Simulated scan of single mutants.
Amino acid sequence: MFVVRPFQATTLSWWHSERDQLDLSPPYQRSPGVWSSTDKAYLIDSIINGYDIPKFYIADFSYVSSNLNITGKPYAVIDGRQRFEAIFEFLDGKLKLNKNMVYLGDEPVDISGMDYFKLKEKHSKIAQRVENFNITVMSVITNREDMSNELFVRLNRNKPLTGAEVRSAMTGEVPRLIREISQTNFLTKSIAFSNTRKQSENVAAKLLLIEHRGGFVETKKINLDRFALEAALTETEFSLSAERVKSSLTDAFHIFKENDPLLKSSGVIPVYYWLTRNIGIVNLRDQILSFETFRNASKNHPAVVAYNNASRSTNDPLSYKLRYEILKSYITNDGNSLKLEQDIPGILNLAS
């Protein structure tokens, strides 16, 4: 079943009052925080000044039960999450209008920089424009995950979706396992890079691919996309690989700190993951930190030169192998730079 039809006429205040019935985070959705405060306030500006805004699309589970309804809520956002969040933030008093906003109504008033409660206090009729603003909502009634996800991708076709966002909208075992891995403590608490565009899912896809292949492989977008589709085309078992990834990430969570400065770049995660998986010593973080100190102080050392050159192509299998072998040599030799220099010819030969 797949039916798209207009939802009943509803105001912003109605959706605000019913927001606990709306799932804003189904698997295919972008992570929160993609819009800046300026972008959010500009949407409220458009509403106040009477401009049209795009349609919202929701999965409507209020008519028939569906196995897609994983939260038990009657509605789930397919397209419009950022807009709903901006509206809810404003009506909660957490978002202020932009300071350069110009009210285009007949009455010449300055409402720039006001939050909702200040606006309601000073200009209640203008506040009511927001409360009573009718939005166009399309109700999607379906029990087919592939159709719901395809609708999300189609609606966002002219928007710059990341590879991780598109893969998250795919059906099948691999996208599901990628989402599970991205929710581990290591990828929610230890990383220190932004996750506003599902970057943690992108890392999770790389780790699952590397684990499933049994070694470093190319992890560019095209390879990750093919891997995400693989479950639908083969009988290969992926859950065992995912369990190994989650087990190693549990170890990594106890090795690294929360919001760890060593994890500011997503490009190093597969290398650190492979070290955790294969070495897994308790002081691994201290050893990596020691190498970074050595790397900053000895830029002409052949191992540092090789490591820095490899770091320019983070998704390349040769880059992964070189960085891993250099770090492994440094760690197993207790930071002996002379021994590391002696190992470099063998490392370069092994990586190639």
Rank of each mutant, 00 (worst) to 15 (best):
D52N: 10
A303S: 13
S148N: 10
I344M: 15
L161K: 01
L318F: 13
L43K: 03
F117S: 07
I141N: 08
L12N: 10
R30E: 07
S313T: 15
E230H: 05
R19H: 11
T11V: 03
F88E: 06
S337Q: 12
L104D: 12
D106L: 14
L12P: 09
I44S: 04
Y272F: 15
M114L: 15
Q287F: 00
D52R: 07
Q21A: 15
D225T: 15
T196Q: 08
S352Q: 13
K206T: 04
V64T: 11
Q82R: 05
A164K: 02
Q8M: 12
G215T: 02
Y273L: 01
L233G: 03
V282Q: 10
Y324K: 00
Q29A: 04
W35C: 03
L224N: 00
V137C: 12
P261N: 04
T71F: 08
E258F: 11
P317K: 01
P345V: 03
E121I: 02
Y324R: 00
R295W: 07
N134Y: 11
K264C: 03
A9N: 11
S329P: 07
D92L: 06
L338C: 09
Q183C: 05
A164E: 04
I135C: 12
R81G: 02
D286F: 04
V203F: 01
Y28T: 00
L97V: 09
F253R: 05
N283S: 11
A86H: 05
S37L: 14
Q128E: 15
E107V: 15
I288C: 00
E292L: 10
I344Y: 04
